[in-house]
Amino acid sequence: MSDGYLLAAIATMAAVTYIPRALPLILVRGKIESHFVRSFLYYVPYAVLASMTVPAIFGATDSPWSAGAGFLIAIVLGLRGKSLLTVAIGATAAVWLVEQALRVLLVFI
């Protein structure tokens, strides 16, 4: 592929990534008064994080089983209000352990 096409493609990607990030932050100054919009915006973080996590989390590791185990550990630790780092490490460890266990199991089957 030519360098010109490559650079143009990267610049295009950068522009359509930056513009959605910058536009609302530049245009919307001050508080939005609408009660509905404020309530809507209150729920957006939860909805966006939840829909980004499920179902994508099940494809985030080598096996949906290990991902499921990591997800479960993250839910349990999250419900207990553990820090982000603790939850991330706990889930990562759970995935690793389950994948090692699966590997051992496969040897015996």
């Binding site: 973080p45 939860y46 994080l49 939840a50 980004m52 996590t53 994508a56 989390i57 985030a60 590791t61 080598d62 290990s66 991902a67 990591g70 997800f71 550990i73 993250a74 839910i75 630790l77 999250g78 419900l79 209000g81 553990k82 820090s83 982000l84 603790t86 939850v87 991330a88 490490i89 706990g90 889930a91 990562t92 460890a93 995935v95 690793w96 994948e99």
Partner: peptide
């Protein structure tokens, strides 16, 4: 593979207490 879950785990950590 194990680290692949870490960012999703953070999302879960953020929403679960309010859930």
């Amino acid at each position: 593979s194990a680290l692949g879950i870490s960012l999703y785990a953070m999302f879960v950590a953020i929403i679960m207490p309010t859930f």
